[in-house]
């Protein structure tokens, strides 16, 4: 079972209006493997992630996941409500902030004392960290991250890298894009046009 690829992508192509983004992209992802999608600005990294997540369909080609794969995704949008407190936002994601596991993560990210603060009053980096809490607590087999390290301080970045490495060793898979180097052992595909 574990030898089968978790994800197979064959011959993916995408274009917007008449502009081709990428063409004939094929790759696969195994259990416990990390995939780093590289490419310049506007090369279609986010679009490729959306195709892998099933939100967008490719113009050509197809993807195949192993059945019933759970995925957690964190993109450019944080999925946070500005007018709600940190606690209420976690509640919307089904996370109980009173639990010790949650508390320890919040403490690690320096957010525990902000629990009653409205998210609209947090800084960019703090919002990003709060958004990551959802990923850190998730039990999904696949973690998909779009530029996870933008706006994070060194300490948090190191924390995220450690977390991802730990998940990989638990045979979970990670797909990510990042311009900031992340020290995890990953397969790379470059979608820049030749």
């Amino acid at each position: 079972m574990l030898s089968n690829p978790l994800l197979e992508a064959r011959n993916l192509s995408f274009s917007i209006n008449q502009n081709k983004l990428f063409h004939g992209l094929s790759f696969e992802l195994l259990y416990g493997e990390a995939l780093h999608i590289k490419g310049g600005n506007g090369s279609g990294k986010t679009t490729l992630l959306k195709i892998l997540l099933g939100i967008t369909s490719p113009r050509k080609g197809h993807i195949k996941w192993v059945d019933n794969t759970n995925t957690v995704y964190l993109g450019h949008k944080n999925v946070l409500k500005d007018y709600l407190s940190v606690e209420d936002n976690l509640y919307l994601h089904g996370i109980n902030s009173a639990k010790t596991s949650t508390k320890s993560i919040l403490k690690e990210l320096n957010l525990l004392n902000k629990i009653d603060v409205l998210v609209g009053n947090l800084s960019y980096g703090q919002k990003k960290k709060l958004a990551l809490v959802r990923v850190l607590l998730n039990q999904s087999e696949v973690i998909v991250l779009d530029e996870p390290c933008v706006g994070l301080d060194d300490k948090t970045r190191a924390y995220i890298v450690d977390f991802l490495n730990a998940e990989l060793s638990k045979n979970k898979s990670v797909i990510y894009t990042s311009h900031i180097p992340i020290e995890i052992n990953s397969k790379k595909i470059n979608i820049d046009k030749e």
């Binding site: 099933g54 939100i55 995704y73 993109g75 450019h76 409500k81």
Partner: peptide, 16 residues
């Protein structure tokens, strides 16, 4: 609001 903050996208991925 749900579109801008990514809630719709998040929900679609979770529930199809």
């Amino acid at each position: 609001e749900d579109f801008d903050d990514g809630t719709l996208e998040h929900y679609l991925i979770l529930n199809n």
